[in-house]
Simulated scan of single mutants.
Amino acid sequence: MMELSEQSSSRTVESDGSTVHFHDVGTGPPLVIQQAFGPLPGTTAWLTYHRILADLAVDHRCILVDYPNFGRSSAREFHEPVHDLYVRNTLAVLDELGLDAVSVLGVSTGGTVALDMAMTAPDRVSRLIVGGCSASTGGDPYLLAPAPSEVGRLFDECQSRPADLDRIARLLKAIVFDPELIDDDLVERLYAWRLREPEHAEAWSRSTIVARSNLAALARITVPTLIVHGRSDRMVPLEGALMLLGYLPSADLVVLNNCGHWPPFERPHQFVTAVRAFLAA
């Protein structure tokens, strides 16, 4: 299995006056991997996807993009649909690397960014793998599930108050189906990062996420699309995946049981098997 290094693959690019961090590993057709949602700072793209990278990097050039305020990229205040900012950062990375059309993978926030990218820069996206995501900045309306979700409430509680080990642990354990996946070392690392670099949480608290519905625009996405969703997602319920399936004309859906909001972290083998089969088709 390929040996990967978080440190040696680390790179940065400047975009709109701030630093965007990304990793570049593997060889083959480019696959852009968008960071997931979680406590900030510390929930890096490497954390969420490191368990599938060795498999994907065998025959894909994997480019993992980190968002502002989540640790590796700069702290940044914003007042717009936040996924638009993340799309601009991704396009800056692609321009830096000289890449045109790419496959894009993203769960959680990364899925929303991938969809946004396919709508706003369709010539840059050839395939999509998404999951655990809404289509819209600000979320989509659900028929059954409450809003905000459990994870959304815990995130707001975590970010609006001083750094606290218990609050970070509650948020992380709600993100996954099996709380045993979240060990004390991970909680302590994110807690220490929050204390060491408070500017990320401070910039987030000063920012404004401008809501915008993208549901009507999803019909414009005609590239092959795979949705992989955790059955027990407590951030974006399964009905969110069914909603996407109804709006995306070229989408298929894989549901992973005993899985929450981070499928590549929680069930890496099953997730990467579905992704590799889709990319090879």
Rank of each mutant, 00 (worst) to 15 (best):
Q159C: 13
C158Y: 04
K173L: 06
L172C: 05
A145R: 06
D164G: 13
L172H: 06
A169E: 12
S149W: 00
D183Y: 03
D166M: 04
V187W: 01
I168P: 00
V151Y: 03
E157A: 12
R161Y: 10
L186Y: 08
R189D: 07
P179S: 04
A169I: 04
A163R: 09
A147P: 11
L144A: 13
E157I: 13
I175E: 13
E157L: 15
R153L: 14
L144F: 11
I175D: 08
G152L: 00
L186G: 02
A174E: 08
L190V: 15
A169P: 08
R153E: 11
I168F: 05
D164P: 09
A163E: 00
A147V: 13
D178V: 05
S160V: 06
D184A: 15
L186K: 12
F177Q: 05
E180S: 15
F155W: 10
D183I: 05
R153W: 10
D156W: 09
E150F: 03
V176G: 05
F155E: 00
R161L: 13
V176R: 00
R167F: 03
E157K: 09
L171A: 04
I182S: 06
P146Q: 03
V151L: 01
D185Q: 12
E150I: 08
E157G: 14
L186C: 07
D166W: 09
A174V: 05
L186V: 10
D166G: 12
D178T: 14
A169F: 02
A145N: 05
D185S: 15
L171F: 02
L154N: 03
E157D: 14
F177M: 07
L181F: 07
P162Q: 07
D156M: 13
P162W: 06
L181T: 01
D183F: 11
Q159T: 07
R189P: 04
L181W: 03
R153T: 08
D185G: 08
G152K: 00
E150K: 11
L181M: 12
L165G: 14
I182M: 04
P162Y: 03
K173T: 15
I175V: 14
A169N: 09
D166T: 12
